[in-house]
């Protein structure tokens, strides 16, 4: 890998240098063409990766002197693996037990926040079947003792049940979690009445409610705000290419602030207001996620304008996974963060 990139870079650099000096001595060649540092970032085609799409589309990375390539992934598990293996330099995704296991082995380090679950931002819903609803399941606090479909053990949904239990005084042992691997299978089990409830992304939850297949009990953001995802990179990248990481985070923060101002600002009554550049940014995210703008609007997550992580929640996540026996007991949450780039 290193050999391949070295040759490519050498060849490209030599070619660019020849062009600049020999062929076009008189014309002004853009200096940046040679000096841009290359970096790749692994993302999912979801609106939670919105700030990355904005930074790319509006040229914030170029402005910092970075040539950033987006690498699209289809599942949250793959992104930290790709960062750990060195296939991509940065990654932004949700925090799962698998993520912490990779971090515990020293393969990845969190450097800034991605989105978080916040009151008033509907991202993930607790949805009850009509039968369970009729039998008295009307509030998220009543999920204790129920059968709940989730994607996988160790997923963000698993933690959402855990943190809900922490709030209402039950543990995940008090519910029956049914892991079904992916959302289509969860919906199939839900519609077939095999479970009492599911935790579903907003689009799926709204569709189920619209079809009359179930009742939305509440939103995870309203019940249990938590740090959904993070921007992370390999410890080696931080050691050997610190300037690149600094530039990347600066561009990311510029986009983050713009995203926050456009999508996350509330008026005095608590209702969301359209901020500056709303439509233009919405188009960027809709294009990148290949979704209709009206669907994107319905599930735009909250981001901290300064990329600050909810450290307490990350510590709680690590403790939760450790108590579940899914993350190494010796892992110290503080050791897998390097927040010097965002000054936290």
């Amino acid at each position: 890998m290193t050999f391949a990139s070295w040759t490519r870079r050498a060849v490209l650099g030599a070619a660019a240098a020849t062009l600049a000096t020999a062929v076009l001595p008189a014309t002004t060649v853009p200096v940046q063409a040679q000096s841009l540092d290359k970096a790749t970032v692994g993302v999912l085609a979801l609106s939670s990766s919105g700030p990355i799409f904005i930074a790319k589309a509006k040229g914030y990375f170029e402005r910092e002197g970075l040539d950033v390539t987006l690498s699209m992934f289809t599942s949250a598990q793959q992104v930290p693996v790709a960062v750990a293996s060195g296939d991509v330099d940065f990654g932004v995704t949700g925090l799962t037990a698998g993520f912490y296991n990779l971090a515990a082995k020293g393969a990845i380090t969190m450097i800034a926040a991605q989105s978080r679950d916040e009151p008033g931002f509907p991202l993930s819903a607790y949805v009850a079947t009509n039968a369970a609803h009729a039998a008295g399941l009307t509030k998220p606090s009543e999920l204790k003792g129920k059968r709940i479909a989730i994607t996988t053990i160790g997923s963000t949904f698993h933690y959402m049940i855990g943190i809900l239990g922490q709030k209402y005084g039950f543990t995940v042992k008090d519910v029956t979690m049914v892991p079904l691997q992916d959302v289509p299978k969860m919906v199939a089990a839900f519609k077939g009445g095999q479970v009492d409830a599911i935790l579903a992304p907003s689009t799926v939850a709204r569709q189920l409610a619209a079809d009359g297949a179930g009742q939305i009990l509440g939103w995870a953001g309203d019940e249990t705000p938590w740090q959904l995802g993070a921007l992370f990179t390999g410890p080696k990248t931080i050691q050997t290419r610190r300037p690149v990481v600094e530039k990347f985070v600066r561009a990311y923060k510029t986009a983050l602030a713009e995203y926050h101002a456009a999508f996350n600002v509330k008026d005095s009554s608590g209702a969301l207001v359209k901020g500056p550049g709303y439509d233009a940014l919405l188009t960027i995210i809709a294009d990148a996620t290949k979704q209709k703008p009206e669907i994107v609007t319905a599930g735009l997550p909250y981001v901290d304008p300064n990329a600050k992580l909810l450290i307490d929640d990350v510590v709680n996540q690590v403790k939760f996974w450790q108590s579940e026996g899914q993350v190494d007991k010796t892992l110290d949450a503080k050791s897998i963060m390097d927040l010097s780039f965002i000054g936290q």
Binding site: P80, V81, P179
Partner: peptide, 17 residues
């Protein structure tokens, strides 16, 4: 939705890395 099983075990270990 398998709680036990060698396949479920392998899948879970993969998910948890």
């Amino acid at each position: 939705g398998a709680e036990y099983g060698i396949g479920a075990f392998v899948l879970m270990a993969g998910n948890l890395m």
